[in-house]
Nucleic acid binder design. Structure first.
Lengths: 336, 336
DNA sequence: TGCCTTGAGTAAAACGTTTTAATGCGCGAC
DNA sequence: GTCGCGCATTAAAACGTTTTACTCAAGGCA
C-alpha cells in the first residue's frame, strides 16, 4: 500500500524517498543553502519518480511572496477597452507579461470594471502597475491600504509614487505642431472630464500655445464613461456653434472615433475641411477612414521599463521617483 | 503596547477584538455556516477597526482553490502576438478577465514564450483556457500532468478535452466562397506547418472544394515561427512559379501581411490582380492597405463561453465535450 | 419529564512549505 | 589532544486560514 496514493506528493514524500529531511529538500529546491551533490542527486531522483510539483500556495503562504504582479487601470472600459476590447491596457499587459517572466513572475490582468474592490478581491500580488491613475484613484487607494508596491505608468496626480514619464507635454506639442503645420487655424481640443494628469498637461499646453498663436481656445469636456457616443454628440454641438473649426485634437482614441462619425454626419471632409489627430495609436486610429494621425507611445518599452522598476521596488532596491519613458513618435496618416 | 503592532492583522486578531473564536470569524467571512447577526456585527466592526484583509495565500493553501484561471496559447509569438503584440490571445484574455470576475476569479495572462514550463512555473490556477493547441501541445501536457481542468478554444488534436468550436470548416468555406464569388479562379492557400486542427480542417475544405471546382490546388506551408517574413518569401516563390494565381487565402493574419508585402514588391495589384483574404480580423487585417477581408470570429463571445465552461468544470458540474461557439461572420474589405 | 434535534460557538487539527535553532561531524590551528 | 569553525543535516516551529469534531443551550415532541 503506497502511502502517497490519492494525494499529490509533497516535500515530505520526497524527503522520505530520498532519505533526507524536509528541510534538506527545501534547500535543494531553492538553492538557498548548500546541499551535498550526492544528496541533491538523490532528491532530484525522488522528485522525478514521484512527479513532485511544489504547492505554490503553501510556498507563498510561508514566504509571503506571490511571484505575481498585476496590471490595472481605472479608465472606464468604454475608453480603455474600446473596440474589440483591445487597447492601451492590453498592449501594456502583453508586454509586461513577457517581461515579468524574466523575474520569475506571472502577470494577472485586472479588467477595468466599475468596482475596483471587486476586481482586486481575489488578486494576490507582490506589486502592481497602475496605468494613468486619476486623482484619488480607487485602485491606488486600495493598493496603498494593502501596502502593495506600485509603479505608475503616466503621472500620478495626488500620491507620491514612482512613475514612468510618458511625455504628455511633448506629445501634446507634437500633435499641435503638426496640426498647425498642416494649416489648421481653429483647433478644438476634446478631453476627458476625469482628473488625470495627462488631461491637465495636454490642456495646459493647448491653452498656452493657442494663446501664443492668438487662436481662441475651444475645449470640450466629455466624460470618459460616455466614450465614443459622448464624443460624437459633443462634436456635433461643437461644429454647430463653431462652424469654422478646422482642426480637432482628440485626447482619447475613443473620442476620435466619435469625432470622425460626427464629421461624416455633418458632411465635413477629413482632412480637407477638418484635420483630426489623436493620442493613442491603437486599433481605432488605424481602422478609421481616413486613418488617424496619432502618436506611437512605445507602450511595449514603457511596460518593460515599468516592470523592471516594479521588480526593483519589490526587491527593496532603490529606484528613481521619475523615470523617463521612450520619446513618443508621431505617426502621420490620412486624417491630417 | 498593541500586540498587533508591525504585523498585519489576522483572523486571530479579529477574533480577539470581537470576542469570538477564529472559526466563527471564518464562518462570518465565508458565510458557510450560520452566525448570529449580533455576533456578525461585532466581527464586521472588528474587521473595520483593524483594517483586516484576508491573507489569500493562506486561504488558498487551506482550501486548495486559487480563484485564478489562466489563458495561454502555444502559437509562437511571431504570429500570436504579432504587430503591436495585440491579437488573438489578448482579445480572448481581455474578455476572459472580465467574465472571470463573475466567478470571483482573477485571470493570469501566460505569455507565448519558447518554454511553456518556464511560463507556468509560478502560475497557480484552478483551471486554464488553452487556445488552438497543436498535437502534443506542450501546455496541454503540462496541465494534464498537474491535473488542471482545461477548456480548449478551437479543437484539440490528440487529447480528449472539452472545447469550444470555432467553426473552422465554416470559416474556410466562407472565405473560399467569397474568393470564388469575386472571380478568383487560381486560389492558393498559405497555412502553418504546425499540427493544428484549424490547419487540417482548412486544408481539407480547401482541397475538396478545389477538386470540385476543377481547380488545381496550390498549398504553401510556412512555419508559424517564421511569421510575416516567412510568408513573404514563400509568396514570392509562389508567384514566380505560379504567375496566374489570382486569389490567396492566408490562414494566419501574420502570413497575410507577408503576402501583401510580396504582392506589392512583385507589382501585383490588390484586389484587381490578386484577391487576398485572411482568417483573423485583427490589427493587421485592418491596418493593411487595402484592408483585408477577414472573418470576425467573435472572440469576446467565445472567451465568455470558454470561461463559463471552465468554471462549471472546476465546480465539478457536468459540461458538454463540444460547445458550439458563435457563428463567425465575414468582414468584406478592399483586398477582395 | 426525557429524548432528540438544531443552531451557535469553540478548541484544535490540518493544509505544505520555508525557516530557525540545534546537532553532529570532519578538519585545521593551536 | 583539544578547541573552534564551517558545513550538511535535522526536528520542530511557523505562516494564516478553513475545517473538523465537539460542547452547550434552547426548543420541539412524545
Amino acid at each position: 500500500m503506497d502511502s502517497t496514493a490519492g494525494r499529490r506528493p509533497t516535500v515530505k514524500d520526497v524527503a522520505r524517498i530520498a532519505g533526507v529531511s524536509q528541510g534538506t529538500v527545501s534547500n535543494a529546491l531553492s538553492g538557498m543553502r548548500g546541499v551535498d551533490p550526492e544528496t541533491r542527486q538523490r532528491i532530484d531522483q525522488a522528485i522525478a519518480t514521484l512527479g513532485y510539483i511544489p504547492n505554490l500556495a503553501a510556498r507563498r503562504m510561508r514566504t509571503g511572496r506571490t511571484n505575481t504582479i498585476a496590471v490595472m487601470t481605472s479608465m472606464p472600459a468604454a475608453v480603455s477597452a474600446g473596440s474589440s476590447r483591445l487597447g492601451f491596457l492590453m498592449e501594456i499587459a502583453a508586454s509586461a507579461a513577457i517581461h515579468a517572466l524574466d523575474y520569475n513572475s506571472a502577470l494577472v490582468l485586472v479588467p477595468p470594471v466599475a468596482d475596483p474592490a471587486v476586481a482586486l478581491r481575489h488578486v494576490a500580488m507582490d506589486g502592481a502597475i497602475v496605468i494613468e491613475p486619476q486623482t484619488d484613484d480607487a485602485f491606488l487607494l486600495l493598493l496603498k491600504r494593502r501596502g502593495v508596491p506600485v509603479v505608475v505608468i503616466g503621472q500620478p496626480a495626488s500620491v507620491d509614487l514612482p512613475w514612468v514619464d510618458m511625455h504628455y507635454y511633448r506629445t501634446a506639442e507634437m500633435l499641435l505642431a503638426h496640426l498647425l503645420t498642416q494649416g489648421a487655424r481653429r483647433i478644438a481640443l476634446i478631453v476627458g472630464t476625469s482628473s488625470r494628469v495627462s488631461h491637465h498637461v495636454t490642456l495646459e499646453r493647448y491653452e498656452s500655445w493657442m494663446l501664443l498663436e492668438g487662436i481662441p481656445p475651444c475645449v470640450i469636456y466629455v466624460p470618459e464613461a460616455d466614450g465614443e457616443d459622448g464624443s460624437y454628440r459633443a462634436t456635433l454641438d461643437l461644429l454647430r456653434s463653431n462652424p469654422d473649426i478646422d482642426g480637432i485634437f482628440a485626447s482619447i482614441d475613443a473620442f476620435a472615433s466619435g469625432v470622425m462619425r460626427a464629421l461624416r454626419d455633418m458632411g465635413r471632409a477629413v482632412p480637407s475641411d477638418v484635420r483630426v489627430v489623436t493620442r493613442y495609436n491603437g486599433l481605432r486610429a488605424r481602422e478609421e477612414r481616413p486613418a488617424l494621425t496619432a502618436v506611437d507611445l512605445h507602450l511595449d518599452q514603457i511596460a518593460a521599463l515599468a516592470t523592471r522598476l516594479l521588480m526593483d521596488l519589490i526587491a527593496g532596491r532603490e529606484i528613481e521617483r521619475i523615470t523617463a519613458g521612450p520619446i513618443p513618435s508621431l505617426v502621420v496618416r490620412g486624417s491630417s
